[in-house]
Design a binder for these strands. Sequence first.
RNA 1: GCACCGAUGGCGAAGUGGCUAACGCGCCGGUCUGCAAAACCGGUAUUCGUGGGUUCGACCCCCACUCGGUGCUCCA
Length: 494
Amino acid sequence: MDLELFNTLGGRTEPLVPALDNTLRMYCCGPTVYDYGHIGNFRTFLHVDVLRRYARLRGMALKHVMNITDVDDKIIRNANAAGTPIHEYTAKFARAFFEDMDALGVERPEIVARATENIPEMTRLIERLASEDIAYRAEDGSWYFRIAKFPDYGKLSGKDLEGIEDGARVDVDEYEKDHARDFALWKACKAGEASWDTPLGCGRPGWHIECSAMAMKHLGPSFDLHAGGEDLMFPHHENEIAQSESASHVPFARHWFHVRFLLVEGKKMSKSEGNFYTLRDLLLKGYRASAIRFLLLSVPYRHQMNFTFDGLTESANAIERLRTFARRIETARADTSAHADGALSTLIEEKHRTFHAALSNDLNTAEARASVFDVVRAGNIAMDNATISPEQRTAVQQLLQDFDTVFAVLTDRDAESTRHAVEWAKSEGRDAEIASELLTTLSLSSEQIEALIGERNEARRRRNFARADEIRKDLMEKGVILEDGKEGVSWKRK
RNA sequence: GCACCGAUGGCGAAGUGGCUAACGCGCCGGUCUGCAAAACCGGUAUUCGUGGGUUCGACCCCCACUCGGUGCUCCA
């Protein structure tokens, strides 16, 4: 069974098969590093992460390129306002971006390309377009792309150019363009703005040309897949296609992957609505990175998803169930003498198949998730009855391993991410934003917890349950949950 | 205005022209436990926005309507 993905270009679901060496060559539009990333940004990166993880699980090799836009209007404006040179300003947010990606378990692309380190590639591309009169220089020294020269313009988004001309607002201040729809390739330098001296003249690159130049530099003129948020479809990706194909005369990306927008509490996330959250905001409120990851992945990428705090709690609980199960299956004593329940073996096998079928079917993460939970219940029953065989145990572990290769939530790294966020908040003087429960929870070290558990065990042995319960209650209030199992006491942080 | 997407239980959400409409969370009752927790069992939608149509048969196909959302502008 092939991995099938919806292709925005053509509007159909198609098999995703790498053109060369079984290596998936993909490009994903990365962040513009002018501020901390918000959860909408991360939904896109998270789903791209699932795509790359699943492609690899299926045996594909990966060559994934992501850009960092480290020069643009917003960066210049914000850096100036902060009185910081733009490279310092962007370095800070680029670092923060990768810290956040790490917290969410998003793998690094094989290649990260920074716009400011690829200026010559961009100017060469523009020169190439200029040589065919597709790029032209305006009076102020800016360069534009002549859309009239690219008849396929609109093929990705299905835009009707006529309609756009009539209905859309036109940039009135860019009157130097030959045609209203022509877009900037190169922006002439202005006082107080970062600029480069190039054969095109002094200036800085437009946003669209960055991606074309860097994608082609690393992946060649034609490659397998290009990804991004749905909002980038037009005009950004449309422009990329126009520039790239005009220069190379071959098809640019074969497959276009777009992740739909995220709503927050039913509305589009925006600062004015007061429903705008960065990852750091959520971590400081005490939500776990794993819960955020799992929630953002729980709705398939082509559906709009509504982010809520209830959903976050729910995801955290669901993950707890999975982790408890994973721990249990790890330590369960498989009974070799018990005759294996054939129905269980069949179920595990079937659900493992369903898991792959779901992800192969346009990355249906919701269904993939469900097949794992089916096995969780069956596995728990078998372990309750001590009828699980060593083979079944192994089969379950293999499913969990595949699951976690893609979802990456079973290993608990949450405390570390949270601690980082707390340290960051303190260093930025944002202590007030740290949830108080978080501070009490973090104040207790593992050693202290173990010591209290030892004391409680002693009390229980003496059947001093009042004291035992007191300790348990005390720990609970500090965010530590105890579980008395047959094999002893285990604990976890809330 | 033009274009597009969605509407499934208390909440999130999958799904198929015809078996009891997945799965998760929550809630109620039970088993287990010193008590909890975890785990398990049972109960939680005779029903898939509304109206009409196609069909032997529709939640799934078609039409209309209502509601919600998105794009057309910087935006993941």
